[in-house]
Write a protein that binds this DNA or RNA. Structure first.
Lengths: 97, 97, 97, 97
DNA sequence: ACACAAAGTTCGCGTC
DNA sequence: GACGCGAACTTTGTGT
């Protein structure tokens, strides 16, 4: 078997931990790239939040605008079918007449 | 004032709906600014996801890297105190000895 | 004041860690009560999921039913006002005509 | 039958909307079952929140207890492997030494 | 592998 | 001014 002295700890190792040579430099590079992007994403999130604040400050309703943005983001056909379906179900129950 | 008797629609109106003159143009402007930023944010989210895929492809464990990034994002002092507290509680229960 | 020289570890301790005598028994009791409730909550979640599966199995659309349940859970007046507001905004933008 | 010639809305109907005869009674039954369970779930959620309030009131740190409960819920072996992996990654980066 | 749904965390708001 | 409450966003897990 000639396993003397090396290969220690291979046998019982789960799939995850056996994942290969973990290069610290490579890991560091990945982490830094992610950190950078996370920061940008966070900044944009802040900008969006600012707009909602501003908008609310001049009398608009933020939740409604939020809803608007989401609806506009949807495909028109999908939205129509979804709404049709909702109507069918609501009428079946006799609610929201 | 000639407001006698009708008081048209003011009385029962809730705080939200009375919010003032809703300029369509202004609303449109707000919506578009938000849409633009949301798109950018989404794109960055995609980039981050790509990095995790790449990273996983070369043998790293994504959840662990995610954990790393989050830990690094914390203030060192806060992290230390949090960990100390966790140790105290765990030992109080006699678990994770 | 006679505080010279001892007082070890009191000064720099944050508000959180100074929180008083941590009784292991009491902590254990709290934890167990929470665990029990979490388990029940999880079970109910499973039951709900089963119903959606069943419902889907006989031809209903799960997302739509989900929407229905949520709408029914709302106060009627709130729902009406929300919908009115949405209409106003949507028409202001000239969308979803 | 008087359905000659129009075949109203069958042809272009998507998979979802063609889902079969929607019995209002059956739908109602499903909805009510879900509502009941959702209510119970919500109540339990409230109970759990109460415990955290109580616990905080006598000096315990809620986030730490939350963490404890979650850790206890995990399988011991999984937790160990997760921690090992975290150590490996942290040391690779030379952080949290 | 993608999308949907659930859970946890965090942020803003109203209250005391 | 702080605390508790509620909503919103993010992330994790699951089912297709």
């Amino acid at each position: 078997m000639s396993n003397i002295g090396h290969n220690s700890g291979e046998a019982a190792v789960s799939k995850k931990t056996k994942a290969g040579p973990i290069s610290a430099d490579r890991l560091k590079s990945f982490v830094e790239r992610i950190q950078k992007l996370e920061q940008e994403k966070k900044d944009i999130g802040g900008d969006i939040k600012d707009i909602y604040s501003e908008l609310k400050g001049v009398g608009y309703d933020a939740p409604t605008v939020r809803w608007l943005v989401k609806e506009l983001d949807m495909d028109a056909a999908d939205r129509d079918e979804r709404n049709t379906l909702r109507d069918v179900y609501a009428h079946a129950l006799g609610v929201f007449a």
